[in-house]
Amino acid sequence: MSARNDIPPDTVGVELLDHGVEVEYIDGRTTLYRGVPEPVTDTLTTPPKKETHVLVTDPTETEGVMLYVNDLKTHDDVLESTGVGRVILDEGEEEELFPGVAVRRLGGMRTEIEADPETARGRVFVFVEDDWSESSYEFVTESEAADRDDAAAAGED
Rank of each mutant, 00 (worst) to 15 (best):
E63T: 13
V21M: 04
V23S: 02
V140N: 07
S135D: 14
S81K: 03
G28K: 07
V140L: 01
K73S: 15
E93W: 06
V140T: 04
A3K: 08
R29L: 13
E144I: 03
Y137W: 10
N70H: 10
Y33K: 06
M1S: 13
T45Q: 04
T119S: 10
A146W: 15
D157Q: 14
G107K: 11
V126N: 00
E38D: 06
A145S: 08
D147I: 08
Y137H: 01
T62Y: 14
M109S: 15
D58E: 15
F139P: 05
R121A: 10
A102G: 09
V128M: 05
G155K: 09
E138Y: 02
K50C: 09
L79A: 02
G64T: 03
M66Q: 01
R123G: 01
R121Y: 11
R121E: 14
A152N: 12
F127S: 03
V12H: 03
I113E: 00
Y25L: 06
D130P: 06
T30N: 03
E114D: 15
S136Y: 01
V56R: 01
S143D: 14
R34N: 03
L32A: 07
T46D: 07
R86V: 03
F127D: 07
D90G: 12
G122K: 07
V84S: 09
S135H: 11
F98I: 04
V128A: 05
D77G: 05
L72Q: 09
M1L: 08
Y68D: 15
P39V: 04
E22D: 03
P37Y: 06
E129T: 12
F139N: 03
G100K: 00
N70S: 08
S143I: 15
R34D: 11
K50F: 10
E51G: 13
K49S: 14
G92V: 08
R123H: 00
G28T: 08
L55H: 02
V14I: 12
Y33P: 00
E96F: 08
E156I: 15
V65E: 05
P47E: 10
E80P: 03
Y25K: 10
P9E: 09
E144A: 02
D157I: 03
E112P: 01
V87I: 13
K50Y: 10
H53W: 12
E51R: 14
T62A: 09
G13L: 02
P47K: 05
E15N: 14
R110V: 08
G85A: 07
F139T: 01
E24K: 08
E38T: 09
Y25Q: 02
D27C: 06
V54Y: 01
L106H: 08
T119E: 02
L67T: 09
G100W: 01
T43H: 02
G35S: 07
E95P: 04
S2Q: 11
P48W: 13
T11S: 12
E134S: 13
P48L: 10
V87W: 01
A102V: 07
F127V: 03
L97M: 05
R29F: 14
R123A: 12
R148A: 01
L17C: 05
G20E: 00
S133L: 15
D150H: 15
T62C: 10
G155F: 05
D71F: 06
D149Y: 07
T11L: 14
E15C: 13
D90L: 14
F125W: 07
T60D: 13
N70V: 06
E95I: 13
G107Y: 02
V140P: 01
E93Y: 00
